[in-house]
């Protein structure tokens, strides 16, 4: 893939919709199923991933000319691990309660395929600015997915939104149960697929 020709805005939208990490690329599914029980969890992990993605992308695109091709992957891993450790330490220090709620998932960002993949296909070929906006787009796309899942599960399962009571009772406790994450992600993917087919059909008919 040659250097991108997209504008910064297009890069962000690309990450949010066309190449949404959760629903379209189907990468980083573990947190999407595991801890999307509340909006707050989704938001916080989204922020953490956004931070790691942006900083790693910028770092790699900054030093891309100096990376020896044979140690490309180890360098990526090292970069990601460093930024994950940083965000892990910061969250543990300043938001201890929320950090505990997420368990080991913050530290597991290091193994999220989405970040390595963006470094490999985008950051190592593009300028720092483009990589920055791509990172923002991917991070926001991930956050968007996590918050959507969290919102559905929290509202339907607990009757609350961000901890505030909105319905007053619990419509479907099933959605808070851990296994419901799988079902919901499956449904959401199907919805994205359906929208895409309808959109394509319309476009064809229009042409």
């Amino acid at each position: 893939m040659p250097a991108t020709t997209k504008t910064n805005f297009q890069l962000v939208v690309n990450g949010l919709l066309n190449e949404n990490p959760i629903f379209r690329l189907a990468l980083s599914m573990c947190p999407a199923v595991g801890i999307s029980t509340t909006v707050a969890n989704g938001l916080l992990l989204g922020v953490a991933v956004l931070f790691v993605q942006v900083f790693s992308s910028c770092t790699i695109s900054l030093i891309k000319d100096y990376i020896h091709p044979r140690i490309r992957i180890p360098t990526y891993t090292l970069t990601i691990a460093t930024w994950v450790t940083v965000i892990d330490l910061v969250l543990a220090a300043y938001l201890p309660v929320a950090y505990k709620a997420m368990g080991i998932f913050v530290r597991l960002i290091v193994a999220f395929a989405i970040i390595t993949m963006r470094l490999e296909v985008f950051a190592c070929r593009n300028t720092v600015t483009a990589s920055f906006w791509d990172g923002i787009g991917m991070g926001l796309g991930f956050m968007f997915g996590m918050v959507t899942l969290g919102a559905v599960r929290e509202v339907l399962g607990m009757g609350t939104f961000l901890g505030y009571d909105v319905i007053g009772f619990r419509p479907l406790l099933f959605f808070v149960l851990p296994a419901a994450g799988f079902f919901l992600v499956g449904f959401m993917m199907a919805v994205f697929n359906y929208v895409e087919t309808v959109y394509h059909r319309r476009a064809k008919r229009g042409a």
Binding site: A26, L177, P178, A179, A180, G181, F182, F183, V185, G186, F187, M189, A190, V191, N193, Y194, T197
Partner: peptide, 23 residues
């Protein structure tokens, strides 16, 4: 399988059923 569900979506639903039984 319905068209929209082919591939990954149905796999997720199946995994959900497995998760329920593993509970």
């Amino acid at each position: 399988v319905p068209v929209s569900y082919r591939g990954l979506p149905i796999a997720f639903i199946v995994a959900g059923l497995f998760a329920l039984s593993f509970m």
